[in-house]
Computed example of a mutant assay.
Amino acid sequence: MNYSIKELSNIAGVSARTLRYYDEIGLLKPLYTTDSGYRYYGEQELDLLQQILFYKERGFDLKRIQKILYQEQFHLMDALEEHLLELKKQQAHIASLIQTVEQTILSMKGEYQMNDTEKFKAFKQRAVQQNETLYGEEARKQYGNHEVDTTNQKIMQMSQQKYEQFHSLESDIKQLLENAVVSGNKPNSEQAKQIVVLHKKWLCMVWKQYTPQAHKGLSAMYVSDERFRTYYDERQPGCAEFLHQAILHWADQC
């Protein structure tokens, strides 16, 4: 059965304007367009739209979704199984949050002795899951499953004080990067060296072993992978490239 753009909009809960935009950028082309310019969609287009909505729900941007959907090795069943796995992870996270809230209530009533690790376990699990979803595939390809699993385990085992230090250091690095780019500093400057030293310290909190070569390899992903670049360039364009060049210059000396 084929649907007009209005009918598909009603079925999927997606505005006709959005569907036209998806057509314009090549994300979701209609099955055919009449001479009068009316778009019609078939079953295959409906399946693709469902996938787009699944990936959007998981936080993927449209550029990344398009890359996934139109790669040669994309299979609908594999994608659905991946969505199911991700949803089960989210379900487990919600269950963990519920448990944390319940334990906190009991602790405040004096009916349960809650330690600091339990208070923040669910939040650390969420951070690990988000990193796995966004960067896990690339990280595992480059560094192997064992290294990534070790990093995740280190995060989960962090005390609250160390976990706060880890995130504080991450924020400091991003702020210093933004300041350096805005001020026109060069990647071979002393300010850049300070950033690389802090970045190395941040990595060493979760890496099993640090090497300058691995540091340089990671920095290459910051500019070659759109997700990493977007993370560092979120508030100030040029930060990802600055960090990459600074690491290339200073990693062997820090």
Rank of each mutant, 00 (worst) to 15 (best):
2 N>C: 07
5 I>G: 06
7 E>S: 13
8 L>S: 12
10 N>E: 15
10 N>F: 08
11 I>Y: 14
11 I>P: 12
17 R>W: 03
18 T>Y: 10
19 L>T: 11
19 L>C: 08
20 R>I: 07
20 R>V: 08
22 Y>E: 10
22 Y>A: 07
24 E>C: 02
25 I>P: 08
25 I>W: 05
25 I>N: 05
27 L>M: 03
35 D>R: 00
35 D>L: 05
35 D>N: 04
36 S>P: 02
36 S>R: 01
38 Y>H: 12
41 Y>E: 12
42 G>H: 08
45 E>Q: 14
45 E>T: 03
46 L>M: 15
48 L>W: 08
49 L>K: 04
49 L>V: 10
49 L>T: 10
49 L>R: 04
50 Q>R: 02
50 Q>D: 08
50 Q>I: 07
53 L>S: 07
53 L>I: 10
54 F>N: 15
55 Y>I: 08
59 G>Y: 10
66 Q>M: 11
68 I>R: 02
73 Q>E: 15
73 Q>C: 07
76 L>R: 12
77 M>K: 13
78 D>W: 04
79 A>C: 14
83 H>M: 14
84 L>A: 11
87 L>T: 10
90 Q>F: 11
91 Q>T: 08
91 Q>N: 09
94 I>V: 15
94 I>D: 06
95 A>N: 14
95 A>S: 14
96 S>L: 07
102 E>D: 14
102 E>C: 01
103 Q>N: 15
104 T>H: 02
106 L>F: 02
107 S>M: 06
108 M>L: 15
109 K>A: 07
110 G>N: 07
111 E>C: 06
112 Y>G: 07
112 Y>R: 13
114 M>V: 11
117 T>C: 05
120 F>V: 13
123 F>P: 05
123 F>G: 11
125 Q>H: 06
125 Q>D: 14
126 R>L: 13
129 Q>N: 11
137 E>D: 10
141 K>N: 15
143 Y>T: 08
144 G>Q: 03
145 N>P: 06
147 E>T: 14
148 V>M: 07
149 D>C: 01
151 T>W: 02
155 I>G: 00
156 M>W: 06
158 M>K: 00
158 M>C: 04
159 S>E: 11
164 E>I: 04
166 F>N: 00
169 L>Y: 01
171 S>H: 04
173 I>R: 00
173 I>T: 02
175 Q>E: 09
176 L>G: 07
178 E>Y: 00
180 A>I: 02
185 N>S: 09
186 K>I: 03
188 N>I: 04
189 S>F: 06
189 S>P: 12
190 E>V: 10
190 E>S: 13
192 A>I: 08
192 A>P: 13
192 A>E: 11
194 Q>C: 06
194 Q>E: 14
200 K>C: 09
200 K>E: 10
203 L>A: 12
203 L>F: 09
205 M>S: 07
211 T>S: 15
211 T>Y: 02
215 H>P: 05
218 L>M: 15
224 S>W: 03
225 D>Q: 14
225 D>G: 03
226 E>S: 12
227 R>F: 09
229 R>N: 09
231 Y>H: 14
234 E>P: 00
237 P>A: 01
239 C>M: 00
239 C>W: 00
242 F>Q: 01
242 F>L: 01
243 L>E: 05
244 H>A: 13
244 H>Q: 15
247 I>N: 01
247 I>T: 13
248 L>T: 05
250 W>K: 04
252 D>I: 04
253 Q>G: 06
